[in-house]
Write a protein that binds this DNA or RNA. Structure first.
Lengths: 154, 154
DNA sequence: CCGATACATTTAACATGTTAATCATATTTG
DNA sequence: CAAATATGATTAACATGTTAAATGTATCGG
């Protein structure tokens, strides 16, 4: 059996941790976790967004998102309302205070990202991200095929 | 500001999740989490190992490892003893039952890994892992340099 | 030898990941 | 239209991530 420390999941985990280790201290200084930051960033790029769609773009599971939105709302960093036409759905938007927080954190965050890009090489970084995307897409098809095969057995 | 969904941290997170999504159901069928599996795998490749070293190779923080070892010991999948010469240190090893569990899970796990490799291409996968390692190494140096710069200011 | 310091591990506290269950609202169907 | 079903969101329960504090043991300096 392969040395598991050289497996693909471990390679991905270590690489991501190496990257996030650069960002976490700065976020922490502003009272934000990585996931809270992702949500604010996602909200900053739209007017309003439904909870389900926000979960998709911020890559969070529903239960995590529910808890984090409750917290962010309590800190007045976001605002929520329900969709009139469908009371099941929630709409979320960033507050003025949330925007201000992003503007405070962004410069440091951008500087860190620039340092990483400089260190690794912009071209190489783009190549890496392309390869990661292909991996992701290839595996989603693998998943789909298994599902199809299972269906055929019913 | 860059679309955060195209950022390096998100690319790494999505890629890793796409990979782990393949493995989790099988592990779950055997009552194991991803982290518990990492620990058993690490233990299977050595006779005994100290807790600190195990944390390093399984890439887990001390507190997580403590909790998981307590759980695995309760399930008789591992065994523990203290180092006589230094009572602070703990030695961990896999039990016969743990070995048996690994032998049960391994075939499925290997098959999934093989399917991923086939889908993505062995050569390309090796290239990706090489690039991930370089990223990790480059960032550890970045970290070291920041530390050195901070020291100079003291 | 002893008090201060360092080290290995665990515990505490809080945030998130993960799956299952629940709740409220919509939609479908008989 | 009413019952059955489906959907969006939250809650529940348990595991791990993360940082700080605590605990026990070892080592070091006087």
């Amino acid at each position: 059996m392969r040395q598991f420390s050289r497996s693909l999941p471990m390679s991905l985990l270590r690489a991501r941790e190496a990257v996030m280790r650069q960002f976490r201290p700065s976020l922490r200084d502003h009272g934000l976790t990585e996931q809270q930051w992702r949500i604010l960033r996602a909200l900053a790029s739209v007017d309003t967004i439904e909870v389900t769609e926000l979960a998709r773009v911020a890559f969070l599971l529903g239960p995590s998102l529910s808890r984090i939105l409750r917290d962010l709302e309590g800190r007045h960093l976001i605002e929520r309302r329900v969709v009139k036409a469908d009371q099941r759905r929630g709409l979320v938007s960033i507050s003025a205070r949330g925007v201000k927080l992003i503007e405070t954190v962004a410069p440091t965050s951008e500087a860190i990202y620039a340092a990483i890009t400089r260190r690794y090489g912009a071209r190489k970084l783009a190549e890496l991200q392309g390869m990661l995307r292909e991996l992701e897409e290839g595996l989603s098809e693998l998943q789909a095929r298994e599902g199809a095969e299972a269906d055929e057995l019913e």
